[in-house]
């Protein structure tokens, strides 16, 4: 166990980097996912088509492929990064957005159709109907699946460790290599620090869920 105590600063550094990757990718994915969901329910057929294709491709292929594209293929197409973190954030947010889009879409579908009809009948346009009437009501049903996706994102960020990004899992691997006799302890430490991030997310979920509850 002393390997954990001795390397606490390293674990802490890894935790912060994982947190950074997750928060930045999470925010981008939430915005992108909501836009994709809006496109999916929009009256414009081309937007619906684009959103469907995007979601189906990204959520049905492994995250590693997304990373491979961001780290290896994008630079060959002329998109280069100073840091591998940027590529990791692109891969994580592009991948996670597909799942968020589906969660938001299911939430949108959970709002009774009459709400949108009433909003349209007082002259609201598509954007107003969505932003003022549908999404605020969809929020309640969307919170639990959304938190699930964000928890998965925190854990998925460990894939970045395999693509030259040092985060919690990456540091863990370094430690395991350096302390071959204490691999179990090192990995238990890694797991503990992931829990430190994901458990509060779950608690946050139930708090927010209660706050946004709407009586029907």
């Amino acid at each position: 166990m002393e390997v954990i105590i001795e390397n606490l600063p390293l674990y802490w550094e890894g935790l912060l980097r994982t947190l950074f990757l997750s928060v930045v990718s999470g925010i981008i994915a939430l915005v992108l996912g909501t836009l994709l969901a809006a496109a999916r329910v929009s009256p414009v057929a081309a937007l619906r088509g684009f959103s469907t294709v995007y979601v189906e491709i990204l959520r049905n292929t492994p995250l590693t492929i997304a990373f491979f594209f961001a780290v290896v293929v994008l630079p060959r197409l002329g998109v280069t990064f100073q840091q591998f973190e940027v590529a990791a954030i692109i891969a994580l947010s592009a991948y996670t957005a597909a799942f968020i889009a589906e969660a938001v879409r299911s939430g949108v579908n959970s709002v009774p159709l009459g709400q949108a009809e009433a909003a349209r009948s007082i002259g609201m346009n598509f954007g107003q109907v969505l932003n003022l009437i549908i999404l605020p009501q969809a929020l309640r049903t969307v919170i639990p699946p959304l938190i699930n996706i964000l928890i998965a994102l925190v854990k998925n960020s460990s894939v970045a460790g395999a693509f030259f990004v040092l985060e919690l899992f990456g540091y863990g691997r370094q430690l395991a290599n350096a302390n071959g006799d204490q691999v179990m302890a090192v990995l238990l430490g890694v797991a503990f620090f992931y829990l430190l991030l994901t458990i509060p997310l779950g608690i946050l979920a139930s708090t927010v869920e209660r706050k946004v509850a709407i009586a029907r």
Binding site: E117, A118, A119, R120, I122, G123, I133, I214, A215
Partner: peptide, 19 residues
């Protein structure tokens, strides 16, 4: 949307904005 703003609609199931 503009034309709808000139036409008031009352539904069987009220459809008040629940939130």
């Amino acid at each position: 949307a503009q034309l709808r703003a000139d036409v008031g609609m009352v539904f069987q199931s009220f459809n008040l904005f629940a939130h």
